[in-house]
Write a protein that binds this DNA or RNA. Sequence first.
RNA 1: GGAGAGGUGGCUGAGUGGUCUAAAGCGCUCGCCUGCUAAGCGAGUGGGGGACGAAAGUCCCCUCGAGGGUUCAAAUCCCUCCCUCUCCGCCA
Length: 416
Amino acid sequence: MIDPQLLKTNIEAIEENIRKRDLNIDLDKLKHLDESRRALKFESEKLRSEQKKLGKEIASASEKDKVILLEKAEKISDKVKSLSEETQQKDEEFFDAWIKIPNIVNSSSPVGKTDEDNKEIKKVGEPKNIKNPMTHLEIGENLGLIDVERASKISGSRFSYLFGDLVKIQFNLVSYTLNKLSEKGFNPTIPPVLVRENALFGTGFFPDDSDQVYEVQNDDLFLVGTSEVSLAALHTDEIIDMKNLPLRYAGYSTCFRREAGTYGKDTSGIFRVHQFDKVEMFSFCDPEKSNEEHEHILAIEEEILKDLEIPYRVVDVCTGDLGASAAKKYDIEAWIPSQQKYREVTSCSNTTDFQARRLNMRTKNEDGNTILHTLNGTALAVGRILIALLENNQQPDGSVTFSDDLGTILGVNKLS
RNA sequence: GGAGAGGUGGCUGAGUGGUCUAAAGCGCUCGCCUGCUAAGCGAGUGGGGGACGAAAGUCCCCUCGAGGGUUCAAAUCCCUCCCUCUCCGCCA
């Protein structure tokens, strides 16, 4: 949610933002709604003030006066009731509409409509020349490391079993990542993966992307699609001293996604599955410093991919392709030999005050309280990194060999 | 899952229908006092929103776990939900 004051103080900024994001929103209607809501509120508060004054008079009035005053009070009470109901309705109407206004994009985000307008910032690492590269699924199945066929019998499509050294590699990768992040001041965290609706609402996944989320109906809980949700909500309703910012967390969790509307996309292997594990970075930070923090998070993501010897490119996501909560977003795409393409393996966003306002998270210093900024970024999307590792290090004989450095991180030098 | 107790400001804790404009204490901030520190004395001390204003500010509303209800009037009475604690049962 963006600051409703903008309607009064800088409506041009919202207009420009809607244009940049290529959206169609009736701002005039919203502005009028806001004005009438304020007017109603003012009337309602005035009347309530009168009612309270009268109440005090009644308390100290003589028996005789009381009868007359009570009659008067009764009438006011009715009016207060109906007026405050009306005010509440208007408020709700306004906020239902306001909540749909996306975050103001950063002025440095490239303006564009679709992912084709995303801007490549750099390419790092040289893809190896692999003749007739196998897919990660072919490699994994041949070596007995991945089984999606049986998984589909048990759980349906888009699930997998991982076996043997691939499991060992996963644990070593997670351990390596958490160690690195811990050294950089990110507090390792195992967050809940079942959350209440408010956490999803506060992070901006609800109401827009509710069809991507698994729901546990009996208990009104939802499975998170990323630990960003439970990490962001960690400091809900808190006021954090600016001296203690930034607060950085590295959350390790399983992620659950329904992948609705992706039928036919990435149907093979473990690239797009309903359940995967991920280490996620999350920062609560001084509003003045969130741009720096964003670059910092991106740099860490790059460092990890370099350590893992995966060729990648960095993409600055364009305004039309940004989610509602992001002001700016970088994706990193790893080279996938079997597709001869770079594919997304990390994503980091500066959501500025958008999530923090919804979750009511503030920071204070001598000048008072302000909404803080939140940022998130993928440190390690395990499944997709495993894909990149298998495919980029495959050998013509179907085995996979890692360099000595990489082998040290993974705890495995060769898969055969 | 069963039985019980309870949720009040940064903390402790009083308050069972009307100056609650939430006592008191602790903590914190500032001042006085003072070789220094402590004690003592005095003042201040939550959050959100609105109206007016260039601003400083002035006035007002909301907020006693959350949401409803009763009433002229609710921290206080009623209902629903959430959370915490104690005991029993079950359990990795």
